[in-house]
């Protein structure tokens, strides 16, 4: 990573052809396995409405690892980063507004 900070101009030229070092890849992989174990462990506890938040939080961290390292977003241009991450806004809208339904359904019964 430090090499990249040294050569920012070259960086823009070889668009997205960054090759992930094996060691980094392995570390990310192990991190993903650990988070998978946490997902399974968390599923054993019933935390009510928080279940979903916890599961999504873990999944989001995993997704970020994949996006940053395996999809190379960490090494990409700012323009592409903005475009990529703005798509999460729409995912957020989808989940947030759907939850304005799911979380408040019981109120209908009263």
């Amino acid at each position: 990573m430090s090499q990249h900070k040294e050569h920012p101009p070259e960086h823009a030229e070889h668009k997205g052809h960054h090759i992930l070092p094996v060691l980094t890849g392995a570390k990310v992989w192990i991190a993903l396995l650990i988070f998978t174990a946490i997902t399974v462990a968390a599923a054993r506890f019933d935390m009510g409405n928080v279940n979903f938040t916890v599961a999504m939080a873990i999944a989001t961290i995993k997704a970020f690892l994949v996006v940053l390292f395996f999809m190379g977003m960490k090494y990409d241009t700012n323009e592409n980063r903005i475009i990529f991450f703005s798509s999460f806004i729409f995912l957020f809208i989808f989940i947030f507004l759907t939850y304005s339904d799911v979380l408040f359904r019981e109120l209908v019964m009263k």
């Binding site: 507004l97 339904d101 109120l107 209908v108």
Partner: peptide
């Protein structure tokens, strides 16, 4: 951000 207007009688919450 408006899709729920198709679902007013679907059993969707009143908040939604």
């Amino acid at each position: 951000i408006v899709w729920g207007h198709h679902m007013f009688v679907s059993g969707q919450s009143e908040t939604a």
